[in-house]
């Protein structure tokens, strides 16, 4: 993993929040993912293959997604499905940006959304994963990047 890769994913996520909400997301200090799971209520995952392999996922709480969806939809009544759609959309945005930035010799999968706190998200063990905490308003979510 290169410095520019990690910066790219951080900036990409940060820009999404800024564009959608007009507010910056505060990225915390990245750290190395160990054995302990980093999974919240909703998770959007994309796979990366081709010249370099890996996975990227964003995991968030229902509360944060509801507040975010509220801003986008202008409503307070946010259903579970809308939370799922939103986490999928965030993952999709990251995926789109990756596709744009990394070129066509990379393969980016369609985002897969998981609802509910899974035991963990299985990532390739031989590649070091980095966890980037994202703080938006009083909420915290995580971006996990695993790329060889």
């Amino acid at each position: 993993m290169k410095e520019s890769d990690l910066h790219f994913f951080m900036d990409s996520t940060s820009n999404y929040f800024l564009e959608i909400t007009g507010e910056k997301v505060v990225t915390g200090i990245p750290y190395l993912k160990a054995m302990e799971p980093v999974v919240l209520e909703y998770t959007g995952i994309i796979g990366i293959s081709g010249r370099r392999k890996g996975s990227v996922y964003i995991t968030s709480t229902a509360a944060m997604l509801k507040e975010l969806a509220g801003i986008i939809l202008g409503s307070d009544d946010i259903k579970e499905d809308e939370c799922k759609d939103l986490i999928g959309e965030i993952a999709n945005t990251i995926s789109g940006n990756v596709r744009q930035a990394y070129g066509s010799d990379f393969m980016i999968s369609v985002p897969v959304v998981i609802k509910g706190v899974a035991e963990d998200i299985h990532l390739p063990e031989e590649i070091q994963s980095f966890v980037i905490p994202l703080n938006w308003r009083e909420h915290r979510s995580f971006l996990v990047v695993c790329l060889e």
């Binding site: 990690l6 951080m10 990225t27 200090i29 990245p30 070091q128 980095f130």
Partner: peptide, 18 residues
């Protein structure tokens, strides 16, 4: 200082562990 400023350091740390 912000979280992004720590990126090179964290990558270096990962190298050390390896």
């Amino acid at each position: 200082i912000s979280g992004t400023d720590f990126v090179p350091l964290v990558l270096n740390f990962s190298e050390l562990r390896l």
